[in-house]
């Protein structure tokens, strides 16, 4: 069941990845695949990554992911610069229907895309890490985790336990699961009681979510720990109270 769940989640992520150039998942009759959009020059991309509108920054991040004409190392450098800029932005605007702010979502995309690129150019990603500080450094560590670099597992565990940034703790929990870092199980179990809570308005209704607990539960499931919800809807380790 757990393995099946992992595969399914990966399937949906893959669908999201391909949806930039066409949806292979939805396939509604009569709808065509999305048309390729105009591509920017590198200079234009860099400018867009520093744009005032989050929509422009997010679009540029999305385009970088598919720009195979630019070497992975160069793309990492550009995205690392963009990340360093992004973490300086103070904008509380919450993205449509989301419980995260728009800039948090751009940061998540930057982190995961850097990790994706880092699979082929891990050294470049490490070099970027050496030059970074603060949240940018934290996210580059997480990106290395997304790239499968086990050597940063302990640092990511520290982020889960010590970062004051909810979005960092959330992503750290997730990456620890992806890295299959079993030493993190206890910390992840503790994270099921992380106090961070967000009330948000979705397209359907308002809802409350504990972001760190959610990702900690997902990581535990990947690590083979059975997690469930009690009658109050709270996440808990299954069988612990039996």
């Amino acid at each position: 069941m757990m393995k099946q769940l992992q595969v399914c989640a990966l399937t949906l992520l893959a669908a999201i990845a391909v949806s930039v150039s066409g949806c292979s998942y939805c396939g509604a009759p009569g709808r065509e695949a999305a048309a390729p959009e105009g591509e920017f020059s590198i200079a234009e991309l860099k400018a867009a990554l520093r744009g005032e509108r989050w929509e422009d920054r997010l679009a540029a991040v999305g385009q970088m992911k598919t720009r195979d004409d630019i070497p992975s190392g160069e793309r990492i450098e550009i995205l690392a610069e963009a990340l360093a800029h992004e973490v300086t932005i103070q904008d509380p605007l919450r993205a449509e229907g989301s419980y995260l702010s728009a800039t948090d979502i751009v940061r998540v995309h930057l982190t995961r895309d850097l990790g994706e690129l880092g699979r082929d150019a891990r050294e470049t990603l490490r070099e970027s890490l050496d030059q970074a500080s603060g949240e940018a450094r934290d996210r580059l560590i997480l990106a290395l985790g997304h790239a499968g670099d086990q050597s940063v597992s302990a640092e990511i565990l520290k982020l889960l336990e010590g970062s004051e940034n909810v979005a960092i703790r959330m992503e750290a929990a997730r990456v620890l699961g992806l890295l299959d870092y079993r030493e993190a199980i206890e910390a992840l179990e503790r994270a099921l009681e992380d106090p961070a809570v967000v009330s948000a308005q979705g397209h359907l209704r308002s809802y409350t979510i504990y972001p760190v607990r959610e990702q900690a539960a997902g990581a535990l499931l990947r690590l083979g720990v059975q997690v469930g919800r009690n009658d109050q809807g709270e996440l808990e380790i299954e069988g612990r109270n039996e």
């Binding site: 769940l5 399937t11 949906l12 993205a95 419980y99 990702q215 539960a217 997902g218």
Partner: peptide, 13 residues
């Protein structure tokens, strides 16, 4: 491909 016990399975917000 989603989890019946996770509210945000993909962690994208």
């Amino acid at each position: 491909g989603l989890s019946p016990i996770l509210q945000d399975t993909l962690g994208l917000g």
